[in-house]
């Protein structure tokens, strides 16, 4: 089971004011009703019956309305489970390589410098996939399309041989902006399968890019993530040999956030690879070839089945019930 927009579930907090307002309204209503009808609680069997009916009606309609809100918010959160095949008549493979060029990628725990390791993996990947087209997106605080989708190996090799944090200007790390731009880097009108390779240490200062990964899944574009660096962490040595320090003057320690990269790969139906494992480049290339071949052979791709309609329909019925409880006259047998 997968929740596409989990942040909508925070809106379930609205149930607290709804319930509080209903309780307040019930208390006020009991007094007002007594004044209007002349009945008082404890004023005889008939009066108590009226008050009991008033309580049951209010309780049920509020309960149904709250249940409607819960189900409608679950529908909004877009819960999905299971898969269904969707026809896909494509051939060839277009790959967007999204490379993190933030300063944390200068840490030397991959075991070489993280950025150099990432560049070497990209160069190996291009050799392993000779028939594919590639585009390159680099990102720090913002993302930049460095090389558009092309077959031209000269420019791609030249780019990766000279890659450095200076190719993108803004400070910070936003994996989300990198993924978003990578999704836009596939030219329209092409009949190729599409995949993204994300190389990063997973340290994002702009939150978890879950929405981007899910958008990729919706578009049928798996994100294969490659984690560069080590979970133990490392200091960042700048080009002039000095250590990058924080505001407190102490060296900044950067760590590989493997969980974030695994989550991105999982959400988009891709796979996670660690740059520290031997043969990562060939395994990644093989994975991409298998992806292309399997989609090409099957002629379809599996897409998640979104279940919002079931929740919303149940919620709608409960809303009708909430209205009917109040609108239909209750008669005593």
């Amino acid at each position: 089971m997968n929740v596409e927009n989990p942040f909508y579930l925070l809106l379930l907090l609205i149930l607290i004011p709804v319930a509080a307002a209903a309780v307040w309204n019930y208390r006020q209503g009991r007094v007002s009703r007594g004044r209007l009808t002349g009945d008082t609680e404890g004023g005889g069997a008939g009066a108590n019956d009226v008050f009991n009916r008033f309580f049951v009606k209010t309780f049920l309609s509020t309960l149904f309305f709250c249940a409607f809100l819960v189900l409608a918010l679950l529908a909004l959160a877009d819960i999905s489970w299971g898969t269904s095949p969707e026809p896909e008549d494509r051939s060839g493979l277009d790959v967007v390589i999204a490379v993190d060029v933030s300063r944390s990628m200068l840490a030397q725990d991959s075991p070489a410098q993280r950025l150099r390791t990432a560049a070497d993996i990209c160069l190996g990947l291009m050799q392993g996939l000779p028939r594919c087209r590639f585009a390159v997106v680099v990102f720090r605080g913002a993302a930049l399309l460095a090389v558009p989708m092309t077959e031209d190996r000269q420019i791609l090799e030249s780019f990766f041989q000279n890659i450095s944090p200076s190719v993108a200007g803004s400070a910070g790390t936003s994996v989300e902006s990198g993924l978003d731009l990578a999704l836009e880097a596939f030219p329209a009108g092409t009949a190729s399968h599409k995949a993204i390779v994300l190389l990063s240490d997973g340290e994002s200062l702009a939150g978890f890019p879950g929405a981007s990964a899910e958008k990729a899944e919706t578009l049928g574009i798996p994100v294969f993530t490659v984690g560069t660096g080590a979970a133990e962490g490392s200091v960042i040595r700048l080009a002039d040999g000095s250590l990058l320090t924080g505001k407190d003057g102490r060296p900044v320690v950067t760590r590989l956030n493997e969980n974030a990269l695994r989550a991105i790969a999982g959400l988009s139906r891709g796979e996670y690879f660690s740059s520290r494992e031997p043969g990562v480049t060939s395994r990644l290339a093989q994975k991409l070839l298998d992806f292309e071949e399997s989609r090409g052979k099957m002629g379809f791709r599996l897409v998640s089945v979104h279940r919002y309609r079931g929740f919303l329909f149940a919620g709608f019925l409960l809303l009708c019930a909430a209205v009917l409880v109040r609108s239909i006259k209750w008669r005593k047998n």
Binding site: A135, L145, V147, P148, M149, T150, E151, D152, Q154, I155, A185, P187, G189, T190
Partner: peptide, 10 residues
């Protein structure tokens, strides 16, 4: 710009 179908970039 290398040969590309990304005309916006071009």
């Amino acid at each position: 710009v290398p040969p590309t179908l990304d005309y916006e970039f071009l």
